[in-house]
Each structure stands twice: as C-alpha cells, then as structure tokens.
C-alpha cells in the first residue's frame, strides 16, 4: 500500500512529485499552473468577502459527505451567507505520516468535484506532513474570497419585531450523520449529512435581497447557537414553534438515542435567514424550486423577548433554547 512519508512534506523531490501527480493534475489549470508562491488575481470589482475555516472531522468519510467536500462547501457557504459569490479558494493540507495515498486521492477527487459544483477555483495551497500520531489522518484548511452580490446588506442591527425566521431545509443532518458514523450508535438506515453548497439558494433570493436582515449557515452549535448569537445583546428575541421545526425521522432518532437536542446539531448545507415579513413567502417559494431547498420553511419570528430564544413546545409549554455547552460534539467538521 502506498502511503504518505515524512519526505512528502520535506520540500524535496517527493514533495514535488506529490504536488505534480495529485494537486496539479486536478487543480493546475488556473493560477496554480506554475506553482507560484502566491496567487495573482484580477480585481473582481465590488465589495470583497474573505473567510477561512479548518476541517478536522472524524471520520474522514461519513454518510452523505467527506472532509474534502466539507472543506470546499464550508468556506464557500460562509462567503455565500455573507451575500457573496465565491470566486477563489486556498487549500492547505496537514497529512499524517502513513496516511494511505488512496485516502488522499479520494479526498482530492471529492474536493475537485465540489469546486466544479461551486464554480470556485483553487488558486494557492500548501502541504505539510507530520510524524505518525501527531495528527489524525489529515486536516484541511481552506480560505476563500468572494464578491458581494448586489442588494445584500445583512446585519443584526436591521432586525425588527415581526421579522420572519426561515430555514432552507431540515436541521442537524450533518451532526447526526457524523455521530452515527462514529459507531457509537449502531444504526441500519442512519441519517445522511446535508453537506452541500448554499450559493444557489442565496442567488435565488434575487431581487428580495434587500429584505434579508441576516443570513448564516447553522454549522457548529446548530440552529440554537445561530439564533442565540443573533439576539445576544439586542432588545429583541426569537420565538419558534416546535411543531414547525423540519427534522428528519433519522435525525430525531439519533438525537433521542443520544440524549441530544437536535437544535444543537450542525448542518453543512443549510441557511438560516431572518427576513422582512413581506418577502418571506417569495423567498420560500424560490428556495423550494431548488433541490437543496425543497424542505424550506418558516420556523418562527422576531419578538420583543430581549436576548432570548424561546420554543413553544409540542406539549403546549414554553422553554428556553440555550446555547450548546461543554464538549458536545468534538471534531464534527
């Protein structure tokens, strides 16, 4: 079995071989072609959006996705929910000595498919190898640059009472899928990660963009974390109906079995948006025309409950939706 050796990160012949055979063969058509020290990029015009994220998910491959596409969509989605169109990506890899080359190839193939799907170009990168035991398989970092689409000016300072909370699909699928894939809950037909791009959803908002007050992808900490971040320090709160929350039976099963709140489980291909009430139906309708938005729905609204996220429970009571705390889900993305 071919494996990664320390020399693959040493900067010498093996490094060059690895980059030529595995990186340039997949990503060498653009600015990466002659391996310059940095990417020289044209001015795209408009307001730039720049973001970065690291990926340490365990296991590397899980139902519905893998670390490679997660690293592309994760960064592209962060740009998208800032109202941006993703353009360029950096890719840095930290590999563990002994990693099967076949695993690396599988991850790189997945990255290639995801960049094509997002129409984003890898323009610079880096590869390091650490001795066995000093990282777990492979870690990725991506940084991305995008340009803001016209009309988007989201910000929590624009929120008003009566604004509507929308989600673009079911919640918590990624977290539940990764937890199930770790084998702590043996499941036959377990949940599948929702890992995927959200930029088409953002694009479909089109002329309603000025009505978007806030957008985020509910990754680590899930919906609960995003909603609490929105209202923190504001004289406004959020009220949701438990009956309206879109959850698959698989996610509910994993959450029930493990005693987790599905609102704390991350998604990797969803949007939470706060919008003006008059635009909610139109945005939902355009989302639902896309496969990744078919389960889009409204889940609640902005209220005067200062700083609090409140859930009206199925049983008819109400409770606080708190931030997740503690080491709930290490290495989930």
């Amino acid at each position: 079995m071919e494996t990664i050796q320390l020399a693959h990160g040493g900067g010498g012949y093996l490094t060059h071989e690895l980059i030529r055979a595995e990186i340039l063969s997949r990503f060498g058509n653009g600015p990466l072609a002659h391996l310059p020290d940095g990417a020289t990029l044209p001015n795209p015009g408009g307001t730039l959006i720049f973001t970065t994220d690291s990926f340490v998910v365990q296991p590397l491959f899980f139902p519905g996705g893998d670390i490679g596409e997660l690293a592309v969509y994760g960064t592209a989605n962060d740009i998208a929910v800032c109202g941006g169109r993703p353009l360029w990506l950096s890719l840095a890899m930290i590999l563990e000595e002994g990693l099967p080359l076949a695993t690396l190839r599988r991850v790189l193939d997945s990255i290639q498919r995801a960049t094509t799907r997002c129409d984003i170009t890898i323009v610079t990168g880096d590869t390091k190898v650490v001795p066995k035991g000093q990282c777990d398989g492979l870690y990725l970092n991506t940084a991305g640059i995008g340009v803001r689409r016209p009309g988007f000016q989201p910000g929590v300072n624009t929120l008003r009472t009566g604004d509507v909370i929308l989600v673009s699909g079911t919640l918590g699928d990624h977290g539940a899928a990764v937890l199930a894939a770790r084998g702590q809950v043996p499941l036959l037909n377990g949940p599948r990660s929702d890992t995927g791009p959200v930029q088409n959803l953002v694009e479909s908002i089109g002329t309603h963009a000025p009505h978007i007050r806030f957008m985020r992808d509910p990754t680590r900490g899930g919906l609960a974390a995003v909603l609490n971040e929105i209202v923190e320090g504001l004289p406004l709160g959020i009220r949701m109906e438990e009956a309206a929350l879109p959850l698959t039976p698989e996610v509910r099963a994993v959450a029930e079995l493990m005693g987790l709140d599905p609102l704390h489980l991350p998604s990797e291909g969803r949007i939470v948006a706060v919008c003006a009430p008059e635009a909610a139906d139109a945005i939902l309708a355009s989302w639902r025309t896309l496969p990744e938005g078919r389960d889009a729905c409204r889940i609640g609204q902005v209220t005067g409950d200062a700083g609090r996220v409140i859930l009206m429970t199925l049983a008819g009571g109400k409770r606080l939706v708190d931030q997740p705390r503690g080491e709930l889900l290490p290495r989930i993305c």
């Binding site: 049983a315 008819g316 009571g317 109400k318 409770r319």
Partner: peptide, 9 residues
C-alpha cells in the same frame, strides 16, 4: 418537565 415547559401547564 423543563424541556417541554410542563410547569406552564
């Protein structure tokens, strides 16, 4: 009891 807000009822 806390999660479903049963005291309210």
């Amino acid at each position: 009891i806390a999660r479903y807000g049963l005291r309210d009822l």
